[in-house]
């Protein structure tokens, strides 16, 4: 093939190819540099005590245990609320709602909501949960705001996977005399768990990476919170990993700590993405 091309075409071809390689190399290179630099600065600071203790001025130690706990807090609380709501809404929209136009409008709305900047959720969450509902700046207010943020994601992914369940399964089940809910519970949901799980993992990813919402609706304390009673649980308020990163970098100017947190966040993101694609593949079978 190559021999038949005119020299001009060949040069053109070579040039185009070089350009493409260059942009690919540049992108990957930038990314690798970024990751490398973060790890290079972050890894030395990571130790067992860094992960399992709180920062203490008295002892002169830094630890991000509180931020890890707070992050787990918002993940768990947000999912516990968002999962039933989101899956329920998706089931209603795909299996029950009969008004096609209305469903289309809602689907368009969820799609749009999934893409808006999170600072808008932060603002609304602050006004609704912190101020109007008097939750103040607490982890609970933050979690509820995160619920609003991840709901569209969960609804969309659940709906997509419900739609891939063959109609013939539904007919088969109803044809045996099942009621509609029984059919959904025993045939439709089990065949769409993979989509729901993937949606959840994506939601966790968004929660872990979120900062604007948590800055607006939760305090930025890096100290250990007290979760011992229900009341304390509701009132606890502190920085999650992303916010702690901001606090250490911006307010305390402790860049080493900030980079260590960044490394941990990077690792978490990789893990979450791996889990999502694994879950998708494994459950498909």
């Amino acid at each position: 093939m190559h021999q038949t091309l005119s020299p001009f075409r060949r040069a053109y071809d070579l040039g185009a190819r070089a350009l493409l390689y260059l942009s690919a190399a540049l992108t990957c290179g930038l990314l690798l540099c970024l990751i490398g630099y973060i790890c290079f600065r972050g890894i030395p600071g990571i130790s067992w005590s860094f992960l399992t203790t709180a920062a203490s001025v008295l002892r002169g130690t830094v630890g991000i245990f509180p931020a890890i706990v707070n992050t787990l807090y918002v993940i768990v609380v947000s999912l516990v609320v968002a999962l039933p709501l989101g899956v329920g809404a998706a089931i209603y929209l795909t299996e029950y709602a009969s008004n096609r136009r209305l469903v289309e409008i809602i689907e368009f709305a969820t799609e749009t909501l999934a893409g808006i900047p999170s600072i808008i959720y932060a603002l609304v969450g602050n006004v609704i949960f912190c101020v109007s509902l008097r939750l103040e700046k607490t982890l609970i207010a933050g979690s509820l705001t995160l619920v609003i943020m991840v709901l569209p994601t969960i609804i969309r992914t659940t709906q997509e996977s419900l739609k891939t369940v063959p109609q013939s399964y539904r007919e088969g089940s109803l044809g045996l005399g099942s009621g509609k809910w029984h059919m959904i519970r025993t045939v439709v949901l089990p065949s769409s768990v993979d989509g729901i799980v993937t949606g959840c993992i994506l939601a966790v990813g968004r929660i872990v990476g979120e900062s604007a919402i948590l800055m607006y609706t939760v305090s930025m304390s890096t100290g250990m919170q007290d979760f011992s009673t229900i009341e304390n649980f509701m009132k606890s308020s502190g920085a999650t990993l992303t916010v702690a990163l901001y606090v250490y970098a911006k307010e305390n100017a402790e860049f080493a700590v900030a980079f260590s947190i960044a490394t941990i966040l990077l690792a978490l993101t990789v893990l979450i993405n791996l889990a999502a694609s694994l879950a998708g593949k494994k459950l498909k079978r």
Binding site: S168, Y169, G172, S173, G175, L176, G177
Partner: peptide, 17 residues
């Protein structure tokens, strides 16, 4: 549901769950 229990159906395309 009672009716469909009494009157079963086999579809054109096999549709095992």
């Amino acid at each position: 549901t009672w009716l469909r229990k009494r009157i079963g159906m086999v579809f054109q395309k096999p549709n095992p769950f």
